[in-house]
Nucleic acid binder design. Structure first.
Lengths: 157, 157
DNA sequence: AGAATATAGTTAGCAAGCTAAGTATTGTAC
DNA sequence: GTACAATACTTAGCTTGCTAACTATATTCT
């Protein structure tokens, strides 16, 4: 009986995780929408600044923890909005270097306080210790998943 | 300086959460794919069983923490596969009652051990106490997000 | 009872992640 | 130095979440 309840709970974990992910995104989206920025767009901008403004698309995708094709669409939109530029790279002609435009930097300044406010609101009532622990468990489960994925794909050969 | 680092970390939290969500789904998907079941399909089947087999679409959507239109597509696929049926409800002619077919029940038996195995693998190395704490923080952030959403949408009126 | 509102379901179409497959360039191994 | 492998990008198309707008039924308020 207790075992049955545990099973139920464990199934819910994945669902709760999914729900939290969607809600977080929705909140962030609503806050930044008036500026014409969706969630993937402003996280890309933000991350680009943190990485030092001029990086390859590959590096940016890795930092954002998404695949290159997923990033492509977003960068296309940001380019159209005039917030970023994509240059050729002299050292590696395959690569394209992404850089913030002046307009992009200006926009980032405007949204910074909003982004920080959203985070503070969502993490209200959680101590730094709890947050660290939370991050640790996320990493642990992610590692487990990655290991399992590696095992599965290798045996598929 | 330290404050700057904290900000970086907090931005990452949302991304780590998103990544974990995608990895979890991917692992589950690969394990169940040979049976013709994607993640939303088998979670719907599973949840349906836990809810007692005969419930309205609305109730099932709530339990799965997704919106009705999202569920519709999945139920359509499961119906086509002959794993569920949708009946009219006598008491409320708007509602449609979802029920497992014998084939659906049979399939559930087959996948049950696999589902439980995936969960155990992903949660390996995490104590029940840690897991409870993890769930608690998820709920807390989700509540914060919901409150913020409620506030935003109400002031929009 | 009749009008206004709310609810369950449905349809249509958007968003943003993914994989698979293709191209151009680079790096590596004889 | 030439052939093979790996890398960075791109394109095309799938998936499954969502919201908006619609219908049919149920509920609530005078």
């Amino acid at each position: 009986m207790r075992q049955e309840l545990e099973r139920l709970k464990e199934l819910s974990l994945a669902e709760h995780l999914a729900r939290l992910h969607r809600r977080w995104r929705t909140v962030a989206e609503i806050e930044l929408a008036p500026l014409g920025l969706t969630y993937p767009r402003w996280t890309a901008l933000w991350k680009l600044l943190r990485l030092g403004d001029k990086v390859s698309q590959k590096v940016l995708a890795n930092a954002l923890e998404i695949e290159l094709p997923s990033l492509m669409r977003t960068l296309g939109q940001l380019e159209e909005q005039g917030l970023i530029e994509r240059h050729c790279c002299d050292k590696d002609k395959r690569a394209r270097i992404v850089a913030l435009t002046p307009a992009g930097k200006e926009t980032l300044k405007t949204i910074e306080t909003r982004i920080i406010q959203v985070r503070m609101d969502l993490l209200e009532g959680i101590s730094p210790t709890e947050l660290n622990e939370f991050e640790r468990i996320i990493s642990l489960i992610t590692d487990n998943a990655n290991q399992k994925l590696a095992k599965i794909t290798s045996t598929d050969l």
